[in-house]
């Protein structure tokens, strides 16, 4: 495996403030809250989703955004209360479900990137999210 010595820098807009680093979990598919995740362990349960069975707890979740029921924010809110929320949310499609969900999950969140995050970030990469500065640093792992 190749390791980049200089992290890749992506700029974007902070949606929820804060700085955090961690391991990326990347999907090009939107995620359902109610009916799509288990809020007790942070796993994806939608049967046709490419991440079905995997947990986003403590991960830098990179995804297009929210879909499905209006319970989205309430379910991600519960992942925070249950201690299994993602460490950060990087998303590309702004919706009311996504904005409210990010706000009540209270983890650093960003959107409006100057690069394609789905090709720049791979699952397992080490990512530093600084939503205050509007930057994402990606180190390939």
């Amino acid at each position: 495996m190749s390791t980049l010595t200089t992290p890749l820098l992506i700029r974007g807009r902070g949606v929820v403030a804060g700085r955090v680093e961690g391991e990326a979990l990347v999907t090009t598919q939107t995620i359902s809250g109610w009916g799509g995740i288990n809020e007790r362990d942070g796993s994806i349960i939608e049967r046709r989703h490419e991440l079905v069975g995997q947990s986003f707890a403590g991960k830098i979740l990179v995804f297009p955004g929210a879909k499905g029921s209006s319970g989205w924010s309430a379910f991600f809110h519960m992942t925070r209360i249950n201690g299994v929320a993602p460490a950060a949310m990087l998303f590309t499609r702004m919706t009311t479900k996504m904005a409210l969900g990010a706000v009540v999950t209270r983890v650093p969140a960003m959107t409006d990137f100057d690069a394609d995050v789905f090709s720049a970030i791979r699952t397992g990469d080490h990512v530093v999210v600084d939503a205050d500065a509007g930057t994402v640093e990606v180190t390939r792992r």
Partner: peptide, 8 residues
């Protein structure tokens, strides 16, 4: 209306 949530 937009799709609002429990908190909004």
């Amino acid at each position: 209306t937009n799709v609002e949530g429990k908190e909004s």
